[in-house]
């Protein structure tokens, strides 16, 4: 896992973005950019250079599940690892995200350990 990778954190609540950013910094990642919903995230992703996407589900404008589907549909972005961090916890939703090709799914409220563990797992699977 390259600690210099560029990570995009997408959440409509600035508080949650800061929390996730702090946790990622603690794990050792330092190149983190933020967006407040799918609509603002997509141009950043299309601009290139993002190596890992951490996104919420429930956001105004463009929800995380649509962002995930847009990423998978774009040939340039389709292999981008995506971790969902969300309060949406319905069975069908998690299944939908899985079918759409999410790499990990963290349900809010979560602990620092859970986030670290899931981030590790995403990259273990990709590298393994």
């Amino acid at each position: 896992m390259d600690k210099n990778m560029n990570i995009l954190v997408v959440d409509d609540f600035s508080t949650m973005r800061r929390i996730v950013k702090n946790l990622l910094t603690e794990i050792g990642f330092n190149n983190i950019v933020e967006a407040d919903d799918g609509k603002t995230a997509l141009p950043i992703l299309e601009g290139g250079g993002i190596d890992f996407l951490v996104t919420d589900w429930n956001m105004p404008g463009m929800p995380g599940i649509d962002l995930l589907k847009a990423v998978r549909a774009d040939p340039k972005l389709s292999s981008l690892p995506v971790l969902m961090v969300t309060a949406e916890a319905k069975r069908e939703q998690i299944m939908e995200a899985a079918q759409a090709g999410v790499n990990g799914y963290v349900v809010k409220p979560f602990t620092a350990d859970t986030l670290k563990e899931k981030v590790d797992k995403v990259f273990e699977r990709l590298e393994g």
Binding site: D11, F13, T15, M16, R18, I19, N22, L23, N58, A87, K108, P109, F110, T111, A112
Partner: peptide, 13 residues
């Protein structure tokens, strides 16, 4: 304390 601030996101939603 950091993780507890997640309440703001959840209660806000």
């Amino acid at each position: 304390i950091l993780m507890a601030q997640g309440y703001q996101d959840l209660s806000g939603q």
